[in-house]
């Protein structure tokens, strides 16, 4: 076979493979929109559920998910970034560091239901937080730590070593070098990691099942120590537990969940563009 033909075959193969990735996304969105778009009204988004959740809106679930996601990301992001900075910039290559790194890798491999059970045992019962937003957020925070640490370390590594050398050679201390040069330039990458985490935890059901999610709470939470409805769990409930559920409400709820993740990601993307403009090389 001539090299030209081989190349053509290789390219078409690569193209087909990327299509395979694209098609499911298209189908998911397509089905959600076609079956759920009819449910999307202001009333659906901004009112309380009615008739045993067969009517009305899903506001408590939207607010609950937003609260859980924002709380958990604001716990996990600082902890994850600081841990990554320590591991990447300060830690010596010794046994302790390796044990920490090994546990991060292992933490990433733990099934989400195990996190849920851990959260129940540790946060809900042992620390006596009860089934609450804060217990769920903490559980999710632990779950997303490995990915935040890993993406942060990658973006720290992507900051050229020469920037650090220049800063240190001017007599600037290591910590100031990290604060003024390394972190600002790693920020866009760190934010990408945050987007991925948000998208992932917004849809998680198992970890909040025993720690935060309520079957039915027809009002908005007053504090973080209350249990709340959450979109993924609500979706599970209305698709399996409630007879005679109108289909459009199920799909509408799913569509809202997807849109919510999109909006959250979009906000971070806009922030990222802003920071990229400020720190460019």
């Amino acid at each position: 076979m001539s090299p030209r033909i081989t190349q053509k075959i290789a390219f078409s193969l690569l193209f087909l493979v990327s299509l395979v990735v694209f098609i499911p996304v298209l189908f998911i969105i397509g089905i959600l929109v076609s079956k759920g778009a009819a449910a999307l009204t202001w009333e659906f988004i901004f009112s309380m559920p009615k008739d045993g959740m067969r009517g009305g809106g899903i506001l408590p679930a939207i607010v609950g998910t937003l609260l859980i996601v924002l709380c958990s990301i604001s716990i996990a992001l600082p902890v994850g970034i600081l841990a990554a900075v320590y591991l990447n910039e300060y830690a010596k290559d010794n046994l302790l560091t390796r044990i920490i790194q090994l546990s991060i890798v292992n933490l990433a491999g733990v099934p989400s239901i195990i996190y849920g059970l851990f959260g129940l045992a540790f946060f809900v019962i042992m620390l006596n937080l009860g089934v609450s937003v804060i217990a769920g957020a903490l559980t999710l925070a632990i779950m997303e730590l490995p990915s935040i640490i890993t993406t942060t370390r990658n973006s720290l590594n992507n900051v050229p070593a020469s920037f650090r050398e220049v800063s240190l050679s001017l007599g600037v201390s290591r910590w100031q070098t990290i604060r003024r040069v390394v972190l600002p330039n790693a920020l866009p990458g760190i934010m990408t990691g945050a987007i991925l985490s948000i998208a992932r935890i917004a849809g998680e059901t198992a970890p909040i099942l025993f720690t935060a999610a309520a079957f039915y709470v027809p009002h908005l939470p007053h504090s973080l120590s209350e249990q709340v409805m959450a979109l993924p769990y609500h979706l599970y409930v209305i698709s399996t537990q409630i007879p005679n559920m109108p289909e459009k409400i199920t799909y509408g709820t799913a569509l809202i969940l997807v849109l919510l993740v999109l909006i959250l990601s979009f906000t971070v993307i806009i922030l990222r563009i802003f920071f990229r403009k400020r720190y460019k090389w």
């Binding site: 020469s162 220049v166 001017l170």
Partner: peptide
Amino acid sequence: LETLRQEIGMVFAMPISLP
């Protein structure tokens, strides 16, 4: 260390401007 590096400055092979 910070004093030493402030007193003994360095210019590198490639011009490295900070962004």
